[in-house]
Simulated assay, not measured.
Amino acid sequence: MPLVDILSADRFSTYLLWAVNDIPLAERLYSYNVELSADFYSSLHMLEIALRNKCDEALTNAHGANWLDDAAVLTEAYQQKCVADARAMLQREGKAATHGQMIAELNFGFWSSLFGSSSNHLWGQILRPVFNTQGLKRKVIAQKLRDLRRLRNRIAHYEPILAQPIDQLHADVLALTSWMSVDAAAWITTHSAIAYPATPIIVTDAASGNSIFDVALIGHLPV
Rank of each mutant, 00 (worst) to 15 (best):
Y32G: 08
L122T: 08
D172S: 06
S42P: 00
S178P: 00
A97N: 08
P165Q: 08
D205I: 07
A19V: 00
S8L: 03
A88V: 11
S192V: 12
L148G: 02
F115G: 13
H191Y: 11
G135L: 13
W123G: 02
H63E: 00
R152M: 05
Y78K: 06
W187C: 10
A88D: 14
T60K: 15
G94P: 09
D167T: 12
L47Q: 03
C55P: 02
I103A: 06
L16R: 09
M46F: 12
V173N: 01
L174D: 05
L217Q: 02
L169Q: 11
E27Y: 05
T189K: 12
I141D: 01
V34Y: 08
M46R: 11
E76Y: 12
S192H: 10
I166E: 04
N120Y: 15
I103C: 07
A175C: 13
T60V: 14
S119P: 04
L59W: 05
H45F: 10
F108Y: 05
D70G: 04
Q134S: 14
T204L: 07
I126Y: 12
Q101H: 03
N66D: 06
L176M: 04
L16S: 07
P129N: 04
Q168D: 11
Q101C: 03
T60Q: 14
W123C: 01
A186F: 08
G64M: 07
Q101R: 10
S13T: 02
F12S: 02
D39S: 14
L122S: 10
A58L: 09
H121W: 06
I6Q: 11
L148I: 03
A19L: 00
A71W: 06
E76S: 14
N120A: 14
D147M: 01
A184H: 15
E105P: 07
L151P: 03
E159G: 12
V223T: 13
V34I: 13
I202E: 07
T189A: 15
T14R: 13
A186K: 13
R87P: 04
D214N: 13
M89D: 11
I166Y: 01
S117Y: 15
Y78R: 07
Q91K: 13
